[in-house]
Write a protein that binds this DNA or RNA. Structure first.
Lengths: 350, 350
DNA sequence: AATTAGCACTCAAGGAGTCGGAGTGCTAAC
DNA sequence: GTTAGCACTCCGACTCCTTGAGTGCTAATT
């Protein structure tokens, strides 16, 4: 079946398509037959190239901006390019981003992720987006409550991945220092090792029971204390390199800039965009994207999985005219490495 | 002296200048004499207005974009406007941003600051920048070290303002759980209550002494442990509403967009910009700014002080054509409120 | 049969003219 | 001191033209 598709095109058309797309990715200018012939990559005259181009256009792989412009790749063209023409690229160029970070003494997963995003966007000059790692599977290592004043305190949750979550709470009047200590002990005893996402439920069932015995003013105190686990743990999004995009000729149109940045302000949409990706690299080109605002971008995602559980997503957003070759191999490398790191992380988890 | 300056201009010129600047702030279009006369704000003919405008231009308060355009305010014009024409505005329109946040149960200073920035930018549609609160004066409430694996741990510093700072460290081989506990106890005993900025020094002098007695492999262990206090506590910058700027007609020029966003990417420059402001509201217009990239913006800063110590800065960055009236009263209100809040915070500090 | 050369045609981009509108400065009249 | 009137200026939008890079098609060449 795969060969079928390839057979649709002659050897020469394949070569041509490849060269044209490469050229356009490089320069952002429509590619003309004459210019191509002169470049010397192709041993045919401009006329021949013209004929082939016409065929490729008829087949839907190329298109023109107007009747006498050169050709630019259509989305179908890019799709074909991504699926069939950039296979043989080895990803040996990848040199461990994560391992470098770790040798620099960065152990906290979130931080590793964040810095990876930065490196990724620097390396590609596109916008890097990293989701998660989701808190699914992340387990409570320890809870602490540190009183600040008589009415306020900070609750600190530490997870097995080295993530620290903290929030300020107000303290119930009825509680004193030793009560608080007891309470924290109970909570730790009962909840440590449990997945963070389940903490809220467990607090209501397990802990509430026990607290009834200890706390005088039970009802009221609960009021205050539930705040510790109240917020849903937000999926964290790290976006890096937004202003890289401004350098692209595609962004000479101010309205594109506006719509791009307004998307970037709507964090939830980005999360939705990346939330449900399947394992492996996935390339979505232009209108293949569901969100209006990125219909003339391409998005390349690679999701991190630990077992069946999705732990996060690494993505690069750039123009349709993306350097797919480079980006895909980078992303493959990075997500492999991250998955391994994840694995190691959870192995140490006892 | 002040009256002297005011006396430079006639009553009518004052009125005119005011109306012209108001109009330009509103519409971003150069203001013409005919249009002004028609609006009915001014009981003089277009010709009279023209004459006055010519005088105001000669005095340097107005300028033209080209020989037959309407007038726009010069920087000197804005300066005069800000210094003398918007005084009588009461700031009774301000309705406690911070107090609202606090009643919503937000106690941590950093979070209050961050959300204030968001509200501020929403309210003004300019870019809000908040610096700090600086960690000067912030004191250590508690230090904790939570081991994750046998080689790694998280160190958590909690300050009296409810700020939580955490970093991942690697553990020295020679240390075991009970050693670690002892160590943490020592550190807490000696360092709690000290200003966070002094911790690093104290660690080397006070703590190092004591540790020599307890730790076998002293030298090596110090290697690892100093990481806890190693990083300088970075001044935190909260920027909100960058994309608001894109809506301004001033930003139809893509190059301005580029230079603006590239400034926003260089956090240190922003910090430098705001670091050394004197108490009170300060307005810097256009070329009065030192940084090239904001020479056609205006920046309004208001610094938070606690006693003599600068605790942070609230700022709004917008076009020279800013709604100074509104912005200044807002900023006054907010910084008053924040200063008071700061004061309360530190009162509770024992 | 495949390739190439040649030619007529198309379109975008950029420069040169034209025109109307909104503004100005100046002078003379009120 | 104020206003009306008039000549003048400049921007921006519009049209017209030219140029260059491209195309499609046909006929000649290999």
């Amino acid at each position: 079946m795969l060969t079928e598709v390839i057979d649709m095109l002659t050897e020469r058309q394949l070569l041509l398509l490849q060269v044209i797309i490469d050229d356009f990715i490089d320069t952002a200018h429509p590619v003309g037959s004459r210019a191509l012939a002169k470049k010397g990559d192709i041993p045919y005259s401009a006329a021949t190239i013209r004929n082939e181009m016409a065929d490729l256009e008829e087949l839907g792989f190329l298109e023109k901006m107007h009747s006498s412009s050169g050709r630019i790749p259509s989305e179908k063209g890019y799709r074909y390019y991504v699926d069939h023409l950039i296979k043989p690229i080895s990803n040996n160029k990848y040199n461990g981003i994560v391992s470098k970070l770790i040798t620099e003494g960065i152990f906290e997963f979130e931080q590793v992720v964040q810095m990876s995003a930065e490196i990724l966007s620097d390396l590609t000059s596109y916008t890097a987006i990293i989701l998660g790692p989701e808190v699914f599977e992340t387990k409570l290592k320890q809870l602490q409550i540190v009183p600040l004043t008589s009415q306020t305190a900070v609750a600190i949750l530490i997870t097995n991945t080295g993530h620290v979550e903290h929030r300020s709470i107000s303290l119930p009047e009825a509680i004193n220092a030793s009560d608080l200590e007891k309470l924290v002990n109970i909570i730790n005893e009962k909840l440590v090792g449990l997945p963070v996402v389940k903490l809220q439920d467990m607090f209501y069932t397990e802990i509430a029971q026990i607290m009834k015995q200890y706390l005088d003013d039970y009802e009221k105190s609960m009021q205050y204390l539930k705040a510790i686990f109240a917020t849903d743990y937000p999926v964290k999004v790290y976006v890096s390199g937004k202003s890289n995009m401004l350098m692209l000729p595609e962004f000479n149109d101010i309205n594109k800039v506006r719509s791009f940045y307004s998307l970037m302000d709507r964090e939830e949409e980005i999360v939705n965009l990346l939330k449900d990706s399947t394992p492996g690299i996935e390339v979505t080109i232009g209108n293949e994207n569901e969100i209006e605002a990125i219909k003339d971008f391409s998005l390349i995602t690679s999701s991190l999985h630990h077992g069946k559980e999705q732990m996060g997503t690494i993505a690069l957003l750039g123009p349709k005219r993306m350097e797919y070759r480079k980006v895909i191999s980078l992303l493959k490398g990075l997500s492999n490495e991250m998955t391994n790191t994840l694995y190691m992380w959870y192995k140490n988890d006892d």
